[in-house]
Simulated assay, not measured.
Amino acid sequence: MQRDIEKREWLLRRNCSLTPRQTVTAYAALCALSLGVALVFLLQGVWQVLVFTAIELAAVTTAFILYARHASDYEHIVLTAGCLLVERVSAGRASQTVLEPYFTRVAKPDSPRSLVLLEAKGTSLEVGVYAPDAQRRRLAQELQDALLDQKR
């Protein structure tokens, strides 16, 4: 007789130090400061500083755009009776992988940079990108325990 299993969920998110509003404020302050310095030099006839400021601001803009695109990345793992769903969102693109819990094997990370490996019927998937080593190990153990509970 199979036990009823409640829904188990794990949510792994990036650790972002700035909120979207703080990011925009920091970007605006950096641009204003750089352009202010460039303007002072431009008024003194040193126009070359403005060129380097434009290059600097292009690089900073690129970095902030990349940061903003990946700030909301996450992995969401849901285990229910008969279904292990792994949803990933990276740079606004979502992907879902469905595994059968009864056939899923969990491989714990074997080094600090290793991820948790899920394998079932020829499909393998690494999870835990946004978690530190200790949390990945705990995730692997919890997943393994939950899968074993479901098989009983």
Rank of each mutant, 00 (worst) to 15 (best):
Q44N: 14
L85K: 09
K151I: 09
V40K: 05
D110Q: 10
V116G: 05
L115Y: 08
T97Q: 06
Y74S: 12
T19G: 07
R136V: 04
G82N: 02
S111T: 12
S95L: 06
R152F: 09
R13N: 13
V106Y: 12
Q150T: 06
K121C: 09
V98M: 03
I55R: 00
L99H: 06
P112Q: 10
R3Y: 13
Q96M: 03
Q150L: 11
R69N: 11
G122Q: 07
Q96Y: 03
D73G: 00
S95V: 06
A146L: 01
V60D: 00
Y130S: 07
E9V: 14
R8T: 09
R69K: 11
R21E: 12
A107V: 14
E119I: 06
V49S: 00
P101N: 05
S111G: 12
C16R: 15
L99C: 02
S95K: 09
D133H: 10
R105Y: 10
V127P: 07
S34C: 15
V40N: 06
G128C: 03
V46Y: 14
A63F: 04
A58E: 01
V98H: 04
A140F: 05
L50H: 00
D133N: 08
E142A: 05
V24S: 12
R14N: 08
M1V: 11
V37G: 12
A71R: 07
A63S: 07
T123P: 09
S17Q: 13
E142G: 00
A94Q: 10
V37W: 11
R105F: 10
K108N: 01
E9I: 09
E119D: 13
S17D: 13
H76W: 05
Q135T: 11
Y102S: 05
R3E: 15
L66R: 08
R13P: 07
D4K: 00
L99Q: 02
H70V: 01
Q2E: 14
E6S: 09
A94D: 01
V116K: 05
P112M: 10
K108L: 08
P20H: 04
R14F: 02
A140P: 04
D73W: 00
G122V: 09
L118G: 10
E142F: 05
R137S: 04
F52P: 02
V49Q: 02
A81K: 04
L147N: 04
Q144R: 11
V129E: 15
L125C: 05
P101L: 01
T123K: 15
V46L: 13
P20T: 07
M1Y: 07
A81W: 05
